[in-house]
Design a protein around this nucleic acid. Sequence first.
DNA 1: GCGATCAGAT
DNA 2: CACATCTGATCGC
Length: 611
Amino acid sequence: MRSTAYVLGEYGPAHHTKRTHAPNRLYDRDARRACAVPLAGAATQVTGGNWTLGNNQGDRCGVLCQPGAQAMNGALIPGTPIAVDFWSIRKASHARVFFLSHMHSDHTVGLSSTWHRPVYCSPITGRILHHRLKVAERWIWPLEVGQSHLVALDEVGKSTMTVTLIDANHCPGSVMFLFEGPFGVILYTGDFRYTPTMLQEPVLRNQKRIDVLYLDNTNCDPLGDLPSRQQATQQIKELIRAHPNHQVKIGVYSLGKESLLADLALEFHTWIVVSPKRLEQMKVLGLVDVFTAEEGAGWIHGVDISEICWEAMISWNQQRPTIAILPTSRPVKIPHPSVHLVPYSDHSSFSELLEFVQWLKPCSIVPIVKRNMCLPYLEKYLSSDHKASPEPGIPESGQKFTQLRESREQQRATEPLRTAAQQPVPRKDSFASPEKGTNWLEHFGDVTIGQQNSSEQPRDPDTCLQGGSVCCRGEREGIKVELCQLHGAQRQLFSAQPNTQTPARRHTSHASPCQSPLGDWAPLTLASVQKKAALPSYKKSLTCLQTEEFLPPGAAGDCGSLASWPPVASSHVARGLAEEYLLAPLNTLKQYSAESFDQQIEYYFRRGEGP
DNA sequence: GCGATCAGAT
DNA sequence: CACATCTGATCGC
């Protein structure tokens, strides 16, 4: 039980203090400070929740670790050199390959501008990672979603695994990782919201055996099942309709729910007003279409959830009638009668979890959220397939799984897994020793394939150059692969697409393979012949207005800096958007934003016709 | 001064 | 409790 006393602070900029090391802030900190300040000495807390599996003191964690008190959702996968959302090198000396599932801050604890290992993630996550945390581009390895990529696990690339990224439908850029290697088949969902289209992913469609499913069990509670996002969106729309002539504040976190905001923009024909910082991020995401930082240009505002507090509600309502909506399934204290909670969740509901697990029939499940029980509800869907035999080779001491089906599976899961005939990659090698792994980057210097002067443009379509990297395409063990060397042949990464004869690149109208340094690793991502399934949430329902269409002629092939990617929407673009989406035009609404949309449109057309 | 880490807060 | 995130202290470089 936690009891905290609050003293309400003064609203306004009086509390401003300078702080430089929070580059990911997307909201006005002054507003936050003004809301609720813990009264010194009044807070008591019983935590008791410092779960740690494995050895948290040494250099290795178990399945999941929570170093210190900072919320952290990362994992070292036992029996593998894989770290997902885990960024403490000191505590992860065995980890060789680091994956980032999405850009929520509890999954990036430890990531900063000083990070110096390759990070594999989706292209969108890579862009935000660079933009927000200033991780150097050279360490960011975006992998195209929906494709299978071959990744070297040792110094010479003899031991490999494939990783396939699947849209996790959680927030922009979020992915699940399907790892297939000498250890077996592991699906790490990260945070995800299930949707049936996931099962149509080529890599999941055939219901291959999943040895271990790391499952986001956040909402695995039959008593707290949630509405679909579509239903929650409807609820929000009804709330808004029930409050005509009100401005609306939607409380959101730094990333996520952009599609909800866009949906509201189209439904109510208004721009979504966000902070300049958030707009900047929208540009990084390529989602500028309906967002503006121009105060007064629209009557629906996307604000940080922490800004919605009693003081702010009072202040807003003094200016004009205002309601706030918190689209979250998280229990929060309602600070004001005009604040409405809608259970809009970015995590799978209970019934969705059941459906997902029922389809996958994994051999074992590791719940990502330890405090939640989930096995009692899911174990009936576990596979009884026991083809995999325990591999006694690489012991993982001190690691425990909870909620596995039975002790036998528990034993198997804690040990390295191996698969039989369906093994997708050669598995003759075991992983290199952890001691070597500590300095593994130094061992990547031997491989020399397709070396090319970095000032040349690629001529051979099978060899190309990108941001100082040299890429080469070939065949390896019957799988078409690409090998890339970056900055002095330090690392290699393979991209594989076994089922494609002639990979077609995206953006074929712009022939240069050198697009955004992070956005389109054309040489690595063998195109989207398998088009990724369109997920309802982050499928771009709006016409693509942000990238190439607005690039000046010839700009598409430029290797510009990330700061200028995607290009900033200009005012004429905004006019185009207003016309295309029937948004109230920018700059004409400041004095009319409280009026009905019809009046606004009428006014707009009158203006366009002239006197 | 800055980054890493940790305790503690909403 | 909790769809995540921030503040502040301390320490070492």
